[in-house]
Design a binder for these strands. Structure first.
Lengths: 137, 137
DNA sequence: CTTGACCCTATAGCTACTAGAGAGATTATA
DNA sequence: TATAATCTCTCTAGTAGCTATAGGGTCAAG
């Protein structure tokens, strides 16, 4: 049986976050010690690891709740789970594309000398400048 | 002079967001019509565009506030502005790297058949499985 | 048995918005 | 000029996903 602090160390999820997940119903309320402290079993550890992976992959709490529910009903078809992953894959790819554009822009912005004054500064000029926009506005 | 609605259309920033920026002190409170409605000048439009660009690049409100302050003091050296851009470039690159790892993982997860049941589902198994982790925990 | 590290609940705060209520202003049309 | 449609106003509260704080109780080593 793990205390919340040990569970936190082993999963890398912060203590208040673990309690938050419990409150949100993502993890079951664990057993308590005689002094009312949380004591986690191996299952508790695994559930939290599952959630942590999901969050690292950028799934929302809601997505994870769906997956948790599915995993409690192994007789259901798993199309839903694939659907969640696929939906997320698309959004990850979109985010990568967008960030790459931003990277290019930031490089363009900060490439020049650091020695000037704000009056002729590229960072500020670039942010005021629409000529490089890829979205129109 | 633009109404808040027109300003919103031209910059792509939603009306409540414009008022929020004003409240946060990112943009100056504009003139008002006789009936107390906001009326924006060309400068107001430019300032908001500047902010919008910054947000699109993922700068925080605080970063932008610093840049706005800098841009009001053109006699200062612009190292600070470059520093903000450079710091952000680093974090964008880190995010790209992380998302690419996630993309790979999601592809691995959702590549297989959709026909199974949760019991043998890859999505859920993968999220419980640490063997592909690149970060240790 | 005391000390220090840990844990408890409850509440408030964070970022960057977004939504809604209820009232007033502006503008287009009849 | 009257009226209807469309803005716009302020204020409050809600969103996600935590994080921090206050004021207390618990656990394990020496």
């Amino acid at each position: 049986m793990l205390s919340i602090g040990e569970l936190s160390k082993r999963t890398g999820v912060k203590i208040p976050t673990i309690r938050y997940y419990e409150q949100m119903g993502l993890i079951d309320a664990p057993e308590r010690s005689s002094g009312n402290q949380r004591r986690y079993s191996r299952q508790g550890f695994e559930r939290l690891s599952f959630i942590r992976h999901g969050r690292e992959l950028g799934l929302t709490i809601e997505d994870i709740r769906e997956l948790v529910t599915l995993s409690c009903h192994p007789e259901k078809p798993c199309g839903d789970a694939h659907h969640i992953a696929a939906r997320h894959l698309a959004s990850v790819q979109a985010r990568i594309a967008k960030l790459k554009r931003l990277e290019k822009e930031l490089k363009r912005i900060s490439i020049l000398s650091d020695s000037g004054h704000v009056g002729e500064c590229n960072v500020i000029r670039s942010l005021s400048d629409h000529s490089h926009c890829e979205t129109e506005h």
